[in-house]
């Protein structure tokens, strides 16, 4: 119980520290702006000439794609640095002199990372509701259809991004700029190949493996756009 109390306060303090920064507000603004672009049809998923009706399921799904795409990529950079900050400020030294164990400390940092990202997901969830009401292509709000993509897709994905950020900070050679570059390349690569692998698992995993060995060995399938890549996620 005492451990949970410590982890809660660790995550809370870190969360408050970060969400009171200007950079966080900028990121929330950016996420909401992208949500707005979805609403006015600037960012959308089209199947040839068809597009979805702006009902709860469609708005929720589209918004989830947007948030996964944006926070999957840039959210990492937003939340990375929680451990480095403790090191730089000297707060880490004080923690090292307390009975708090290392796994609990990392758990607290992961929860804090996740809370920061999840807050943005929730902001977009609210925005999705408002946008459906504004669009009024389908005025009936189906709450579960609207929020389920966020809960079932976006939140687990944010948990993964939060965990990767903590992992990168724990590995010395991934801690700095090189780690940032590795994540950027890895996430770009994943967004390009994962949809294919999920769509046609067998063929694509072989292609992915061959692509690792020799990228120009065979003609690759036309890569999907980023937004359709995110759709598969």
């Amino acid at each position: 119980m005492r451990n949970l109390h410590s982890v809660y306060h660790l995550a809370r303090a870190d969360f408050l520290e970060r969400t009171r920064r200007t950079s966080f507000l900028v990121m929330v603004g950016l996420v909401l702006y992208l949500g707005y672009l979805v609403n006015i049809g600037q960012v959308t998923l089209r199947l040839e000439t068809y597009r979805g009706v702006f009902n709860s399921a469609w708005v929720g799904s589209m918004m989830t794609l947007v948030v996964n795409f944006l926070l999957g990529w840039f959210g990492f950079y937003l939340v990375k640095g929680a451990i480095a900050r403790d090191y730089q400020t000297g707060v880490g030294q004080i923690m090292a002199a307390t009975p708090l164990s290392r796994p609990l400390y990392l758990l607290g940092k992961w929860l804090s990372n996740m809370a920061v990202l999840d807050l943005m997901v929730f902001a977009l969830m609210i925005a999705a509701l408002v946008m459906q009401l504004i669009q009024r292509e389908d005025a009936v709000i189906h709450v579960w259809a609207l929020i389920s993509p966020f809960l079932l897709v976006a939140l687990p994905f944010m948990a993964l991004v939060a965990a990767i950020a903590v992992l990168f900070e724990c590995i010395s050679w991934l801690r700095g700029s090189f780690g940032n570059l590795v994540y950027f390349l890895a996430s770009s690569w994943a967004s390009r190949w994962l949809p294919l692998c999920l769509a046609k698992p067998c063929r694509c995993w072989i292609g992915w493996a061959l692509g690792c060995l020799k990228p120009v060995w065979r003609r690759r399938p036309k890569p999907p756009t980023l937004i359709t890549a995110a759709a598969w996620l």
Partner: peptide, 29 residues
């Protein structure tokens, strides 16, 4: 322990920071 280069979380206030430290040290609320 008060280290030589003691730092703080600039966006927290004193009460929040001390609550945080108290929890880390195992004090109940």
């Amino acid at each position: 322990y008060l280290p030589q280069d003691f730092g703080i979380y600039p966006n927290l206030n004193a009460v929040e920071f001390l609550e945080y430290m108290a929890a880390i040290k195992g004090l109940d609320s």
